[in-house]
């Protein structure tokens, strides 16, 4: 223990060293704080810039009128309507399949190697770039199924993109429900679906809703699939029936912004 005890643990040199170390620690902590402050400033500045530039033009007329005078005046109602139409239809398709698919993965599929592989694949599909889905949608829905560039093709493409996100978050939310509660359900003589619908799903709901919000952000915000499979800058027909509306391309916010910036 010679080397150890010879270190001492209390002398002037060590005290000096202590205050130096504390100072450096303070500097390091301050630096971390400053960098974080910088990050916050970037975000605030970004959001501020967008709101400050955008806010003066936003009013009821802007939200409810179509663009006028060669896109230099008027509002963005057709774009809002198109975007809502796209999201709405997407979820009508993706939600039931996605949630039931998540239940399938969590409770019905078992844990074979193949399912493990599929789970890994779905995980990475949730992080796959939207441009890949756009290309897939173009090839399969627009060209091979001959749906043309239309709202329907957009729905199917966006639903394909939203599906992995919904499946994964449903599965994870269900997996987080304690096994004891599921077993308690079966012990009470409930059927499999009753256990799902009365015990597991209500508990998993917050997680599933988070997934849906994530997926809707993805569906509405990711411009390439919308632009490539459903988008048109300006649709000339003014009055049209629903069928006619969804068989044609639609105006949408992402495409509108993209065209404006090009």
């Amino acid at each position: 223990m010679d080397a150890l005890t010879s270190l001492g643990n209390h002398n002037e040199l060590l005290t000096k060293r202590d205050s130096k170390r504390s100072l450096w620690s303070g500097v390091g902590v301050a630096a971390i704080g400053l960098v974080t402050l910088f990050v916050i400033a970037i975000i605030l500045f970004l959001i501020g810039t967008i709101i400050l530039r955008g806010a003066p033009s936003v009013n009821l007329g802007f939200l409810s009128q179509p663009p006028l005078e060669n896109m230099t005046a008027g509002g963005i109602w057709p774009q809002i309507r198109g975007t809502l139409l796209l999201i709405g239809g997407t979820f009508l398709i993706a939600l039931p399949i996605g949630i039931l698919g998540g239940i399938f993965l969590a409770e019905y599929a078992g844990s074979s190697r193949l399912i493990g592989l599929v789970r890994g694949l779905i995980t990475s599909l949730a992080g796959t770039p939207s441009i890949i889905y756009a290309l897939f949608g173009l090839a399969v829905f627009v060209l091979i199924l001959k749906l043309n560039i239309s709202v329907i093709a957009g729905w199917l493409t966006l639903a394909t993109m939203a599906l992995p996100v919904i499946v994964l978050s449903t599965e994870q939310a269900l997996k987080a429900v304690p096994n004891s509660q599921i077993e308690a359900g079966y012990a009470l003589g409930m059927t499999r679906w009753q256990v799902m619908s009365k015990v597991a799903l209500p508990q998993a709901m917050p997680g599933i809703i988070t997934g849906i919000i994530l997926a809707s952000g993805r569906a509405a915000g990711e411009a390439p699939p919308i632009i490539i499979t459903a988008g048109i800058y300006f649709r000339t027909e003014k009055e049209m029936g629903f069928l006619e509306l969804i068989r044609g391309a639609t105006e949408s916010l992402p495409l509108h912004i993209t065209e404006g910036l090009r």
Binding site: F104, L105, E107, T160
Partner: peptide
């Protein structure tokens, strides 16, 4: 119960099909 079980399985298979189609067509 069997009805919903079937629906769940169909959805599961649909998800798998979509994944497969994505790879296949790409």
């Amino acid at each position: 119960d069997p009805l919903m079980g079937t629906a769940v399985r169909i959805s599961g298979v649909t998800v798998l099909l979509v994944v497969g189609a994505l790879l296949f067509y790409l």
